[in-house]
Each structure stands twice: as structure tokens, then as C-alpha cells.
């Protein structure tokens, strides 16, 4: 196996792994975005900023309080989810009866504020974050070298996506959620506290983004602008997967990551634009996205 599809296998698998890692993050982020959109009908422009706050949360816990990676992996999403609850109660709550576009604009403003504040405090150069000791090093798979932490990220992402899918499709709480997405008034009439459900959903989506942020901290540097361009890729992923489809958002996340990785191996110049080309093709062939329902 000296050559694989016209290139050394190490390079090929290396790029594929890189794509898979990116895909794992895309999947976690687009999942949260899809859940929030399904429930609040708001495209959360601040999702990238939330992811960044997650990474910073881990960094701050480490550097100011000496709290390591594992507790931070639980603590940070909880803290960020709490902040999300406050934001939802203070700002987003007032936008539900308006045109959806206002929700997008308000969260855009929030993203500017959050990223601006962190940039003001920490500058734009990245801050390093150590890989937890248990996951340092890697495994030689024979055809390639697999860093343990990256394998962990992919595994966690799959568990998390599956867990969220299970929560929404198979549990009673998820049933309420889906019912509320379908018909809010009717669910209210059955005595379920819809506003609380909405707040919880937003907290869940935001928490997912923060979780992704914590996991991203050791791989990418912790940087106030780390979510800035990412959010647009995530938008494209959600369009490809089909708006409001949880399964679609997850699978499209991995798909986009892998396609990006392969493009980087074969034609590096196009690697940052291939997502958008994929989006255009999907829009022409299947306007409602790969897994979206026809409206």
C-alpha cells in the first residue's frame, strides 16, 4: 500500500483524520444551532461566540482557579448554559413574536459584543491549552499515527450527537420539545410550561456549543475570534443538512468535515471554499437540504 488514490497513505489518512476532527466539531455546533432554531425559530448568530466562550471558560478555569480539563468539560457547559438562560430571558424572549430576521440580527449584535469584550481583554493572539495527561501521545494503527486526544474528540462527538438525538427523539422531554415545535399553543393548552421548555432548549444548545469549545481548546488555540469564521461554515452545514433536522445537521457536519479534508489533500486551494460549493450544489439539487422536509 505505497500509494492510495494517487498519494502516500499517511498523507491521505492524515487529511481524512483532520477532516473527521473538524467534522466532529461541525456536527456538535450545527446540532445545537438546529435545536435552537427548531424551538426558538432563531438562527443563533452568537453560536460561534458561545463556542469561543466555552474554550475560554476552560482556559480561565485552568489559569485562574487551577481547575483541570475533566472538571472543566462539565463545569464550563453548565456555566455557559446558565449565562444562556440569562440572555434568553433578557433579550431573546422579546423577539419570539417578531419576524425571524430580528432574532438573527439581535444574536449578531450579541456576537459582536461577546467577541469584542474578549478581544479587548485577551487580544487576538491565541492562548495555549494543554492536552490532558491521560490523553497525551498516540496510537500507531499501522497505516497511520492516531493522536489519542483526537480519537477522544471524535468519540465524544459521536456520543454527544447520539445522546442528543436520543433525548429529542426517544424521551418524554424530547416529545414535549417536538410537540412544541409543531404547535406551541396546543402544548400550552395541555398544561406544559412552554416558556420554560424554550429556555431549557436554548440552554441545551448553548451548552453543546460550550462543550465543543472546551474540547477544541487543546486542539486549536484559544482565541477570541475562533468562532468568528466558523459560524458561517456552520450555517452552510445546516443548510446542507436541512434546517431543523437534527439528524441532518449531525451527518452534514461529518460529511462537510470529510469533504474538506479530502479537498485539502487533493486541491488545497479550494479547501476553505468547498463547503460553500457543496452548499450551492445541494441547494440546486435538493433545495430543502439533504435531510430536510419539503415545506
Amino acid at each position: 500500500m505505497a500509494e492510495l488514490l494517487g498519494m502516500p497513505p499517511q498523507l491521505f489518512f492524515g487529511q481524512l483524520l483532520l477532516g473527521l476532527i473538524n467534522g466532529a466539531f461541525y456536527a456538535m455546533l450545527s446540532l445545537g444551532l438546529a435545536i435552537i432554531f427548531g424551538m426558538l425559530q432563531i438562527v443563533n448568530f452568537a453560536h460561534g461566540a458561545t463556542y469561543m466562550v466555552g474554550a475560554f471558560g476552560a482556559w480561565m478555569l485552568m489559569n485562574y482557579l487551577g481547575i483541570g480539563f475533566w472538571p472543566a468539560l462539565i463545569l464550563t457547559p453548565l456555566i455557559v448554559a446558565l449565562l444562556g438562560v440569562i440572555l434568553e430571558r433578557l433579550v431573546l424572549k422579546h423577539l419570539y413574536d417578531l419576524d425571524h430576521l430580528y432574532g438573527m440580527l439581535a444574536t449578531f449584535g450579541l456576537a459582536l459584543i461577546i467577541e469584542g469584550l474578549f478581544r479587548q481583554a485577551y487580544g487576538i493572539s491565541g492562548l495555549p491549552y494543554e492536552i490532558p495527561t491521560q490523553l497525551q501521545g498516540g496510537t500507531n494503527l499501522g497505516f497511520m499515527f492516531l493522536p489519542n486526544y483526537r480519537a477522544f474528540v471524535v468519540l465524544m462527538s459521536i456520543i454527544l450527537c447520539f445522546g442528543t438525538w436520543y433525548l429529542i427523539e426517544r424521551t418524554k422531554m424530547g416529545m414535549y420539545l417536538r410537540a412544541t415545535t409543531e404547535n406551541r399553543e396546543l402544548v400550552r393548552a395541555f398544561g406544559i410550561k412552554v416558556p420554560r421548555l424554550i429556555t431549557a432548549t436554548f440552554a441545551l444548545g448553548v451548552g453543546l456549543a460550550a462543550f465543543a469549545g472546551v474540547m477544541a481548546a487543546p486542539i486549536y488555540q484559544v482565541n477570541p475570534l475562533m468562532g468568528n469564521n466558523l459560524i458561517i461554515v456552520i450555517f452552510a452545514v445546516v443548510v446542507i443538512g436541512g434546517m431543523g433536522s437534527i439528524l441532518g445537521a449531525t451527518l452534514a457536519g461529518y460529511l462537510v468535515g470529510l469533504v474538506e479534508g479530502l479537498t485539502k489533500a487533493y486541491y488545497p486551494e479550494a479547501s476553505s471554499t468547498v463547503v460553500f460549493i457543496l452548499m450551492i450544489i445541494v441547494l440546486i439539487v435538493r433545495p430543502s437540504g439533504l435531510f430536510g422536509k419539503e415545506q
Partner: peptide, 20 residues
């Protein structure tokens, strides 16, 4: 300096909430 971005964000949110 970069406070301008933050102020713009604040104006954005205020505009959307109260001053559409």
C-alpha cells in the same frame, strides 16, 4: 479602539429590541 465593535453590538441589540 476595538470598543467601537462592542458599542456597535450594543446598538444592534437595542435597535432590534426597542427601536425597530
Amino acid at each position: 479602539g476595538s470598543w467601537v465593535t462592542i458599542i456597535m453590538g450594543v446598538i444592534f441589540v437595542i435597535c432590534v429590541l426597542t427601536f425597530r
